[in-house]
């Protein structure tokens, strides 16, 4: 099963998109509210809160605070939720590759790294072991020629990338 067909990948994708959208809409909204206020609501911005400190200055400083807080929230969420999920998905995919490599060493048919990661062209053999379909898509698009060499193409990770 390829990563792209892994249910957890769909979850990861959904969560990461949602997080990005929330952060994006928050800061764009807050920032352009500030910019538009500076351009069109000058009376409000000129209102003095205490001493020489007015709404304009405080809202300017709040922009700084907002950037710091949003960056911190994003990072915290990514670390707590997205990173572990991604790591798990990759680790499982690698395990599948390892098993397949093992079987191959034991004399079974060739392995498709592509099937494990779902993100690369099929590695060698015509049929992968134990009936899993070799490529999730219809047919590999042209240009995706089977790689002739012994090493997987294009820096395919055997030890794996982390998120």
């Amino acid at each position: 099963m390829a990563i792209r067909n892994d249910e957890r990948f769909a979850i990861l994708k959904g969560r990461s998109r949602r997080l990005a959208l929330i952060i994006l809409s928050t800061f764009l909204g807050w920032y352009f509210l500030y910019v538009l206020a500076a351009a069109f609501a000058r009376d409000v911005m000129a209102y003095r809160l205490f001493g020489n400190v007015n709404v304009a200055l405080v809202s300017g400083l709040l922009q700084f605070v907002a950037v710091f807080v949003l960056a911190w929230r994003y990072t915290r969420h990514a670390r707590a939720v997205l990173d572990p999920l991604a790591a798990q998905i990759v680790a499982d995919a690698e395990e599948r590759v390892d098993e397949a490599v093992h079987r191959r060493a034991a004399g079974s048919s060739a392995v498709s790294y592509g099937t494990a990661f779902g993100d690369e062209r099929p590695y060698l053999g015509p049929t992968p072991p134990d009936g899993t379909t070799s490529y999730p898509g219809p047919t590999p698009p042209d240009g995706m020629v089977a790689y002739p060499g012994p090493t997987p193409p294009d820096g395919m990770p055997l030890t794996g990338g982390t998120r």
């Binding site: 792209r4 993100d119 990770p157 990338g161 998120r163």
Partner: peptide, 10 residues
Amino acid sequence: SVRSLTGAGA
């Protein structure tokens, strides 16, 4: 998408 989100093959 797989690469960008999981870092596989990075």
